[in-house]
């Protein structure tokens, strides 16, 4: 295939590196960008540039932030006795979106997975242990994926945090809202029945 512009080719290749975006979609995006006014496109480019140039990690929780401390850590109305530990900032955003949690967060930056070369030293675990010891949380909530790595990380942290005085909890796993028992997979249903809870009115 012969192309008329190296610049267009480069843009397609760059966009096609996104997850879930193939060359055809990338081409459509490039066509779209070419049709938009220049300031709009430059603004977009600048937004991307700032992700790498201006974004930093919050000194307290390790979340992505524009300043040294993120707005959640600075917010005086958040409950500083409850800490929710998550693997990535996308998990933090998912929990925040539920509006059910008013405490503060700690982002590990991944899960323990020796197979992928990730041990506790590669994650923000030392800072977590330090933080829990220093700040006397009443509860530390471990909110990880229900996978082998999530399970290993949860066990590791629960052990490490055992003697800090904080109550260690983990998010419950089970039947999705609106799901039917009949179609639930056996592992999930088995766990739900094992970890059943008292009915509360």
């Amino acid at each position: 295939m012969e192309s008329s512009s190296r610049i267009v080719d480069d843009a397609i290749q760059a966009l096609a590196s996104f997850p879930g975006v193939g060359r055809r979609t990338a081409l459509r995006m490039v066509v779209h960008l070419l049709r938009r006014p220049e300031p709009e496109v430059l603004q977009m480019a600048q937004a991307l540039e700032r992700l790498k140039k201006d974004l930093c990690l919050c000194r307290e929780c390790g979340n992505v932030s524009d300043q040294e401390l993120c707005p959640i850590c600075m917010n005086p109305s958040r409950n500083r006795k409850e800490l929710c530990v998550v693997a990535d900032f996308s998990d933090q955003m998912a929990i925040e979106a539920t509006s059910q949690f008013r405490g503060i967060y700690h982002i590990l930056g991944g899960l323990i997975a020796p197979v992928d070369g990730i041990g506790p030293d590669e994650l923000n675990i030392a800072s977590l242990l330090h933080r829990v010891q220093k700040e006397h949380f009443e509860e530390v909530i471990l909110a990880f994926n229900a996978t082998a790595e999530g399970d290993t990380t949860m066990f590791y942290l629960a052990r490490k945090l055992r003697d800090t005085g904080a109550r260690i909890t983990n998010i419950s796993r089970g039947i999705s809202v609106g799901a039917e028992l009949e179609y639930a997979d056996e592992a999930t249903l088995g766990r739900s029945i094992l970890n059943r809870t008292e009915y509360s009115f």
């Binding site: 020796p114 506790p120 066990f155």
Partner: peptide, 20 residues
């Protein structure tokens, strides 16, 4: 096994072994 390989013969955090 990945952990054992990465340790290259050095002892490690017993809690990490326990977790796995």
């Amino acid at each position: 096994n990945a952990l054992l390989k990465a340790l290259k013969g050095k002892p490690s955090d017993p809690v990490l072994f326990e977790a796995i």
